[in-house]
Amino acid sequence: MFRPNRLKARIRAGEPSFGTWLQSAEPTFAEMAAIAGFDFIIMDEEHGAGALEAAVATMRAAACTEATVMIRVPSADPVYLRRLVDAGAQALLVPMVETAEEARAIVEAVRYPPHGRRGNANDITRSSSYGMVPDYYARADDSLLIVVQIETVTAVENARAIAEVDGVDVVFIGPTDLSGSAGLPGQTGAPEVEALIARTVEAVRAVGKPLATVPRAGRTHQQLFDEGYCFVASGSEIYFYRRGVEALMAEWRSYRGEAAATPAAAPSSYGR
């Protein structure tokens, strides 16, 4: 059967969507998050441990729910992008996109001719339910959600041109790497970083494309939704587990009369 892209439908309808990150590539955590009610789960292959087989397992784990699995790829490698969409990925998040040319190449890699260069094997791939969706070729391009990340100063300069690329559905602002690119690593609330983010927002909204992001210093996910972002991803299974074991060990040390452990580093954008 053809599984509708519920996240893309929500974005088109103007409905805010809330998601979380999966760093471990463990499908059980994806299934748990999906059952809990997140609108989407981002399986992180840029900083996480997963690869193609884990991506398929994660998509299967969430398939019994309303959640959409988004894959953040390690890079814009067109061969790997094609493998993912053949494997059934409905949403792709591509990091470190800096120019319209790069964005265009991403879109072309995952669209069928005449609009792209994706190879046609839809009679056997998981994306078409192994050939059991007879009109998959005609529906495939429109059912895929393509999200590109702006997270460098160069990308900010080119934000409007990137957003104008046909096939780019959402522009995702990455404040942590953007702060590093601006020479202020980790200072996502710094005025200089806020100014870069504001420039990006203005450029993308001038084109009429939706924006997405993660919480940052001075901005909760609720505030970001109030500012008009279409989706926000907050926290990760690693962060949630770390917080839990730290709290448990703090209780144990207190019981034993031991000194408290050194506090963990400040939360990143994944952990708010």
Rank of each mutant, 00 (worst) to 15 (best):
I35V: 11
I35A: 01
I35S: 05
A36D: 11
A36F: 03
G37D: 03
F38V: 07
F38N: 02
D39Y: 07
D39A: 06
F40M: 08
F40W: 14
F40L: 13
I41E: 00
I41K: 02
I41C: 01
I42V: 15
I42K: 08
I42H: 11
I42Y: 07
I42S: 06
M43G: 11
M43V: 11
M43D: 02
M43R: 06
D44E: 01
E45Q: 12
E45I: 13
E46C: 10
E46W: 07
H47L: 10
H47S: 00
G48K: 04
A49Q: 08
A49R: 14
G50T: 07
A51W: 14
A51F: 02
L52D: 01
E53F: 12
E53A: 13
A54G: 06
A55C: 09
A55D: 02
V56G: 04
V56T: 13
A57C: 05
A57E: 03
A57R: 14
M59V: 06
M59P: 08
R60L: 06
R60H: 06
R60T: 04
R60F: 05
A61H: 10
A62Q: 03
A63F: 00
A63N: 01
A63Q: 08
T65L: 02
T65D: 03
T65I: 03
E66F: 06
E66M: 01
E66L: 08
E66R: 13
A67S: 09
A67Y: 00
A67T: 14
T68L: 08
T68W: 10
T68F: 14
T68E: 04
T68S: 09
V69I: 13
M70G: 15
M70Y: 08
I71T: 10
I71N: 04
R72M: 12
V73A: 14
V73P: 06
V73T: 15
V73H: 04
V73R: 08
P74T: 07
P74Q: 05
S75D: 10
S75R: 13
S75L: 03
A76I: 04
A76N: 10
D77I: 07
D77G: 03
P78H: 10
P78L: 08
P78F: 09
Y80W: 06
Y80H: 14
L81V: 07
R82C: 06
R83G: 08
R83T: 12
R83W: 14
L84W: 02
L84P: 00
V85S: 05
D86S: 14
A87C: 11
G88E: 01
G88W: 04
